[in-house]
């Protein structure tokens, strides 16, 4: 196709507009990272300081707990909950996804629709009874009490991503194994598991990311034993006002792993977040 001068100007303008948006969208992250390495006293200045000697002091303060509660344990709690809930969701999700992708059974269509429909369930509605029950069962502030709800809320996504990746495996491989006398369990663990590995990676990383970022359940169901990093940082604005250096250092520590995970997924991020509807 030929390009008229008008079209060329339009293309150039749209590139400029696109990059203005992209650069503006980076400003909050630039604020976060630069503030975290500014020496004490440089963070809250007007006009903002751009020339300073970078320091890692705020990171040390945050991890050692000089400013507020030590942040290390909170990160550990977040990690345990993210890994635990992801493992649970992947195991339960793989079996369910296999059944939905490959087997014919009564009520399958309804079941698939019901699983999908649970993504609309508002977490704030779920958290109230779970809080009351966890209180009665003495389960407040335990890993399990966060792991199970997180796994449940990530299950529709995990099942949908795995189902579509299992469907791409040629069925003949499984048929051959069935003829050789393999059980369904062996087929799932020996054939489906390795061949669906890319889908499992996508579902797993997404589930970790969502669990790591979750706030409502963590706020309600944890106290000090398993308090997660997002809850910890939300309590930073204490009686002394905000310490911007510590706040932004803690923020950078929380955000760095999820940003890396999202970048690892690239295009699969959208595929996963749309439950496979957009490839």
């Amino acid at each position: 196709m030929r390009h008229t001068p008008g079209q060329r100007i339009l293309t150039a303008l749209s590139q400029v507009a696109l990059w203005i948006w992209v650069l503006l969208a980076m400003v909050p992250l630039v604020w976060m990272v630069t503030t975290s390495i500014k020496p004490e006293g440089y963070a809250q200045t007007i006009p903002p300081t751009w020339q300073f000697q970078p320091t890692l002091q705020h990171y040390v303060d945050v991890l050692e707990g000089a400013a507020v509660t030590p942040f290390g344990p909170l990160l550990l709690h977040s990690l345990v909950v993210a890994v635990g809930s992801t493992a649970l969701a992947l195991v339960l999700g793989l079996f369910a996804a296999y059944a939905l992708a490959r087997l014919r059974f009564k009520g399958k269509r309804f079941l698939a629709m019901w699983i999908l429909s649970t993504i609309m369930f508002p977490p704030v509605v779920a958290v109230i009874p779970i809080f009351i029950m966890a209180g009665r069962l003495q389960l407040i502030d335990r890993y399990l009490t966060l792991i199970v709800p997180y796994a449940a809320f990530n299950l529709p996504l995990v099942i949908w991503v795995l189902r579509s990746s299992i469907r791409q495996i040629p069925e003949e491989i499984e048929d051959a194994a069935l003829v050789d006398g393999a059980s369904r369990m062996e087929i799932i663990t020996r054939i489906v598991l390795p061949l669906a590995a890319p889908g499992i990676a996508t579902a797993g990383i997404l589930s970790m990311l969502l669990a790591w970022n979750e706030f409502l359940f963590a706020l309600t169901l944890t106290r000090s034993q398993v308090k997660t990093a997002p809850v910890g940082i939300s309590e930073f604005t204490g009686m002394f006002g905000t310490q911007w250096g510590s706040l932004s250092a803690a923020a950078t520590i929380i955000v760095a792993p999820v940003v890396i995970m999202a970048l690892m997924l690239r295009r699969h991020l959208i595929e996963g977040l749309t439950l496979g509807a957009v490839k």
């Binding site: 940082i233 999820v258 970048l263």
Partner: peptide
């Protein structure tokens, strides 16, 4: 990047 940032942060 913005999508990945922890909402509370």
């Amino acid at each position: 990047l913005p999508m990945a940032v922890t909402p509370v942060v």
